[in-house]
Design a protein around this nucleic acid. Sequence first.
RNA 1: GGCCCGUUCGUCUAAGGGUUAGGACGCAAGAUUUUCAUUCUUGUAAUAGGAGUUCGAAUCUCCUACGGGCUACCA
Length: 511
Amino acid sequence: MNNRKVRVRFAPSPTGPLHMGGVRTALFNYLFAKKNNGDFLLRIEDTDQHRYVSGAEEYIMKSLEWCGLKVDEGIREGGPHSPYRQSERKGIYKQYADQLVESGDAYYAFDSAEELDRLRHDAEANEQNFIYNATTRLNLRNSFTLSTEEVRQKLDSGEHYVIRFCMPEDQVVTEEDIIRGEVSFKTSLLDDKVLYKSDGMPTYHLANVVDDHLMKITHVIRGEEWLSSMPLHVLLYRALGWKETMPRFAHLPLILKPIGKGKLSKRDGDKMGFPVFPLLWTDPKSGEISRGYREDGYFPEAFINMLAFLGWNPGTEQELFSLEELTENFSLERVGKSGAKFDPEKAKWFNHQYLIRKADDEIAELFVPILESKGIKCPLNKDKLVHICGLLKERVDFISELWDQSYYFFQAPTAYDAQFTKKRWKQDTNQIIEEALKFLNTLDDWDAVALKEKFSDYVNEKGWSFGSVMNPLRLCLVGAGIGPDLFEIFAILGKKESIQRINSALETIHI
RNA sequence: GGCCCGUUCGUCUAAGGGUUAGGACGCAAGAUUUUCAUUCUUGUAAUAGGAGUUCGAAUCUCCUACGGGCUACCA
């Protein structure tokens, strides 16, 4: 229909921390934009002053940044359509509301919130619906029932008013959704939505349509919760005379609770022990803290990859995609229609995949702060730490879990796992270990491979079973039945420390 | 209640009328291993139900059921 440059926007309200569903919406917008060499804008929709939460805006930007979603135009980046915060655009909406009134597509209404509430309640009591539209507007206080004179007078006297869209009486609005195909709505069932509030602010609907038009947005990609307002928006574009450049719509399926019914909420995360927000969030009022994916140890690449697969798939069997690869392969046509239950286990799996693909030295670097938090200060040379990380990364999903797998490298055992001891430390074990210790003392080449070879020969020579020697030795060095190849542990610990640990164990363990 | 959207293994999903309905997560078993893991192999398990259209339906149509969203001077 035209070859305008693709421009999409992510338009959250700063009413709290950005939910992972919101991040996914941002991600899909970003991917679509970049795939089509377009622009990705961030617009803050803060037309509701009551729900404004301080810090939310900053949080949104930090979250996108952490995820690697670079914004082309936004409140911080600026751009040709500044400002990008709707509260700062307040002045530009009124003229469009006025335009609609003039063309007869909107009208003034003076009903109080209480009056309308009462009508809704009454209708509900009678198992009816109250809809402010053609069926009722002639019984209410508005430009239809009041004379031009009266309306003028009320307006001039400063009485509170709103501007409502005049929903056509009997039309069918049909619009193509990129994900869902054609969707139709009967206007007789829709209501005369408020476009302009009595506080002088536009509602979401007006501001959204006006800004998308002014900012030359070509595709509106948003959550399914907006699908029902698509006809209103379509009608607004038409009424405003912007039919030709109206963006195309794509409504994304929702992210649902892992178990049970309904969409994913903050509660579910608390209950089941997973984050629903990208970053840690401290509520400015209550001080309540919500965990974040970042702080929980997720890599942004893993988080993004996981999110992308909630509702989208490439149609191949590849599951691991970098942001660049996602961008290359993304298409709205491959986004599913149905809501996706979030699976925290799969999220961990994604993180594991990214973790094991990281270079050992990078992992080591990330592990250092955790070691320091445990009071371990550069206990080993860097090579050894890198080696440890390489040895153990397969076993964990998060960097922080490395500690549970490796603590014995940094501190000698102070206790010995009772169960393992019982199972592996037999009557003759002390004697065997003492002999083995003598042999180990004679060895100077304390390299894992050499050690393994020489010690294995020795064990064979003595006619011992491997298990009867190795398991107790593991207990001596580690204090428990965990860890990688024992000779690797020997090598990393070094001869002196290894011998010392065996001696201590021999002194401590009695059966 | 009304309107709109949806429904393939427990979960994420593939299969654009013809496949033994495929993959991944999870779970289970086996193999490997000096422990614990890893790894490898195998298994587990699905087209919501009912009508139609068709030689043939997971795929198209309708009905039912179930799920979800919206129904504010909130976004």
